[in-house]
Design a protein around this nucleic acid. Structure first.
Lengths: 198, 198
DNA sequence: CCTACCGATCGGTAGG
DNA sequence: CCTACCGATCGGTAGG
């Protein structure tokens, strides 16, 4: 999570909004709810934002970039020809982004549908591209004989649902560190990909 | 999904509301949106419901009962001392409830937080009890030496997130039948529980 | 960043 | 099930 103190106002607004959107959803959170959390008047927020949807867009766009960049970095660093290591790296990166800012992540996961028109379309495209990358990693692993999957597309969706679930429940002050979360989730995720030999 | 034709009005309202809540969320769906989908005036709905939250409660309560009853039946029918078979049965039952009515299920999964007070507390308790049942099944399997899990609570959360994800994307008219979904998800879920022997 | 204010829409009621 | 209507609240603007 980002420090709320001393962050620029716009960023403070986005962080407070993330937390409120996460707890109650975008539509049930009013501009005045956000203002109240910052000890401001509702109308004053409009010095820093053009619209409520604008703030949602900033959060979702930033989250999408965080996932994309983390995946990029992780896959660059991972061995090129080891599908297991590559999936592991992607999963750990994904969980890391969630653990670092669960508010932002959960807004990305659950509230993007309140975006309209082009923004909605753009984010859907990026989500699809991201999922496609996991899908192709799974296909690579199958081609290499490392994974056994009846349907890599279903497996990718199954996995991403499981990982994204953490955005809803994970608390930074809970009993689990970000690393512990990443370790456990990566382990569970990897198991999904190979035959169950008992 | 339930037939909309000839269902009693109250049930039609709940089915239409489920679909709209699933697509846009509870707060972004107005009473007039629901009425419009039924070719009625907004105020006319109040002959059949006391409040908007009342309709949400009916959907969530019915969904909770469906999950509970399906789990009960599945576990009664499953062998008492075979943890793998028992988890498999529970997963298949859970996915079956989702596939049979994804609208109802996704409202249960995502919109319960818009309930207030006692209802919210009651549903949280039932969710906890349901998850606890899966958790204890996992613990049984570990005790029997059949499952290898670092933390059965985390595994249960991971699994339920993965399964519930289907409530968001599954379409009855899509390329996958309910049985295919249940088969694939049960397979993926079961793999999660045993060591990855490669 | 504030006060004052806008039109639109919200959930819900009265009365038929 | 409809028309007519209610107060409250919504996102947002004007002007300082």
């Amino acid at each position: 999570m980002t420090m709320l103190t001393d962050a620029p106002r716009r960023r403070q607004i986005e962080d407070v909004a993330s937390a409120l959107f996460r707890a109650s959803g975008y539509s049930a959170t009013s501009v005045r709810d956000i203002a109240r959390a910052l000890d401001m008047q509702g109308a004053s927020l409009y010095s820093h934002m053009a619209s409520k949807e604008d703030v949602l867009w900033s959060i979702v766009d930033r989250a999408a970039s965080a996932f994309e960049e983390a995946a990029e970095l992780a896959l660059e660093a991972a061995p090129a020809r080891d599908p297991r290591a590559r999936v592991m790296a992607l999963v750990r990166a994904h969980v890391g982004v969630i653990a670092r800012d669960p508010g932002q992540a959960s807004v990305f996961v659950a509230e993007w549908r309140h975006l309209a028109g082009d923004r909605r379309a753009a984010i859907l495209e990026r989500r699809d591209a991201y999922e496609a990358r996991l899908r192709s990693l799974l296909a690579d692993g199958m081609a290499a004989g490392e994974f056994a999957l009846a349907d890599p597309a279903i497996a990718a969706t199954f996995l991403l649902s499981a990982l994204n679930g953490a955005a809803t429940w994970y608390r930074e002050d809970g009993r689990m560190s970000a690393d512990q979360l990443a370790d456990q989730y990566a382990d569970l995720a990897l198991r999904t990909l190979t035959e169950d030999t008992r």
